[in-house]
Simulated assay, not measured.
Amino acid sequence: MTEHTARLAAIQGDYLRDAAGPHDRQLMNMVEGEMQNREWYERIERETVGHAYHPLSQAGQHRMAYNSAWSAAERNTIEQVIELMREWDTDRCEMTVTLYAAWNDFILEGRPVTD
Rank of each mutant, 00 (worst) to 15 (best):
E3W: 00
A9I: 12
A10I: 14
A10C: 11
I11Q: 05
I11E: 10
Q12C: 04
Y15P: 09
R17H: 10
D18T: 07
A20C: 15
D24W: 01
Q26G: 06
L27Y: 08
L27K: 09
M28V: 08
M28Y: 09
N29M: 15
N29D: 15
G33S: 08
E34R: 03
M35L: 10
Q36N: 11
Q36W: 00
W40E: 09
W40S: 05
R43V: 00
I44S: 11
E45N: 15
E45W: 11
R46D: 05
T48M: 01
V49R: 15
V49L: 14
H54R: 10
P55W: 07
L56D: 07
L56V: 07
S57L: 02
Q58G: 11
Q58Y: 08
A59S: 12
G60H: 02
H62N: 05
H62L: 00
A65H: 14
Y66R: 05
A73S: 05
N76K: 13
N76Y: 12
T77D: 07
I78T: 10
I82G: 09
E83Q: 01
E87H: 06
W88K: 01
D91W: 10
R92Q: 02
M95S: 14
T96D: 11
V97G: 08
V97A: 01
T98K: 11
Y100S: 05
I107N: 05
L108C: 10
L108A: 13
G110L: 01
V113F: 11
T114H: 15
T114M: 15
